[in-house]
Structures are given as structure tokens and as C-alpha cells.
């Protein structure tokens, strides 16, 4: 692993946190990446000695390191104070309070509608909305990809109908 690879990994962690975490966590993406990378370097060094398959090990190291950082930040967070701060000083480029409130309402509705789907559609659709590909979903559920496609299509249809009933047009 070269320094260029380390730099790419750091950038990748920053992008992942920026894209997939709420604003208050995304605002700390540099800290999360920096601190996680220190743990990753440690894990990688151990992997070199123990002969553990490096790619899967590196994924595990990155994931647990980022998870540790997020958990640590969540523990530190004083909800009321941070919420006030979020309202008064949104991060540069972040949506304003009105758009965030609308997104929060739609997010709440999406989760409620997902939870109400029939089981096979719920699991497939939720995993798809959380970024997991059809091959992985098929493997996890022990079904073929056509079944995943079918459940996802029907799940999205049910989800759209549910959201419309709640007054949202996704």
C-alpha cells in the first residue's frame, strides 16, 4: 500500500461520509477520515504480519474504524445544542432549514412506508435504498437476482403508493 493509495482511501472515506451521513456527521468527515485512517494503518500493519486476506481485511478495518468514529461522535453529541447549531449555521453547501425539514419529513415517511411493506419486498427494497446491489441482496437472501428485481420493483411500487397516500410525490 503506497502513500498514494492511502491518500485515495482517505478521500474515499471523506466522500462516503459526506454522501451517506446526515449533515452534522458529514460536517465532521475530515475528522472521521483522519482518525479512522490511523486505526486502519494499525490494522493493515497487523494484517501484513498475520497473512489475513488483505482486501476483505482492509474493508473490515475501514468499516469498523469509521463505525468507531461515528459512535464516538454520537456519544459526544448533545442533541439539543447541535440541533440549534445545525439550524443557525448550516455547513457550507448544505441545504437550508426548510429543505432539511422537508427532507426529514419525507425521510420519516419513507421509513414508515418501508416498515409497512410485506416482508420479502421490505428487505429487498430497504437494502436497495441503502445502496446494496442486486447480487449481494440475492446472495444474502438465498434467491436469484430475478427474484430480487421482482421484489424490488413491486416494493418500490408499493412504496410510491404509500408515500402518495401520505401526501408526498417522490
Amino acid at each position: 500500500m503506497t502513500d498514494e493509495q492511502v491518500a485515495r482511501l482517505r478521500d474515499g472515506i471523506v466522500r462516503a461520509v459526506a454522501r451517506h451521513c446526515p449533515d452534522w456527521l458529514a460536517a465532521r468527515r475530515e475528522d472521521i477520515a483522519q482518525n479512522a485512517l490511523i486505526r486502519v494503518i494499525e490494522a493493515w500493519n497487523r494484517a501484513e504480519r498475520s497473512g489475513v486476506p488483505p482486501h476483505s481485511y482492509l474493508v473490515k478495518a475501514v468499516f469498523t474504524a469509521v463505525a468507531g468514529e461515528i459512535r464516538s461522535l454520537r456519544r459526544e453529541r448533545t442533541v439539543g445544542l447541535d440541533d440549534l447549531r445545525d439550524e443557525s449555521a448550516p455547513a457550507s453547501g448544505a441545504p437550508g432549514p426548510e429543505r432539511r425539514a422537508a427532507a426529514a419529513q419525507l425521510g420519516h415517511a419513507i421509513r414508515a412506508c418501508l416498515a409497512a411493506l410485506i416482508e420479502s419486498r421490505r428487505v429487498v427494497t430497504a437494502l436497495a435504498l441503502m445502496g446494496h446491489g442486486r447480487e449481494r441482496i440475492a446472495r444474502l437472501l438465498g434467491v436469484d437476482t430475478r427474484r430480487v428485481d421482482n421484489d424490488r420493483h413491486r416494493g418500490l411500487k408499493d412504496l410510491r403508493r404509500c408515500l402518495e397516500e401520505k401526501g408526498f410525490r417522490p
Binding site: 493509495q5 472515506i13 462516503a16 451517506h20 456527521l25 500493519n45 501484513e48 482486501h55 461515528i70 437494502l127
Partner: peptide, 29 residues
């Protein structure tokens, strides 16, 4: 939910950083 969502993104970050066939190089660092 955040962690379930982050995993594929972090897998992609690792793939882009070192490739899927990375092998440790003992003295690489």
C-alpha cells in the same frame, strides 16, 4: 442505518484505493 448504508460506499473506497486484488507488501509503508 448509517452503517448499513456506509458499507457499500466504503467497499467502493477501498476498491478505488487499492483494488480488489491487493496484497500486503511487507515493507510497503
Amino acid at each position: 442505518e448509517e452503517l448499513v448504508r456506509l458499507l457499500p460506499a466504503l467497499e467502493k473506497a477501498v476498491d478505488e484505493a487499492v483494488g480488489t486484488s491487493a496484497r500486503p507488501r511487507r515493507a510497503g509503508w
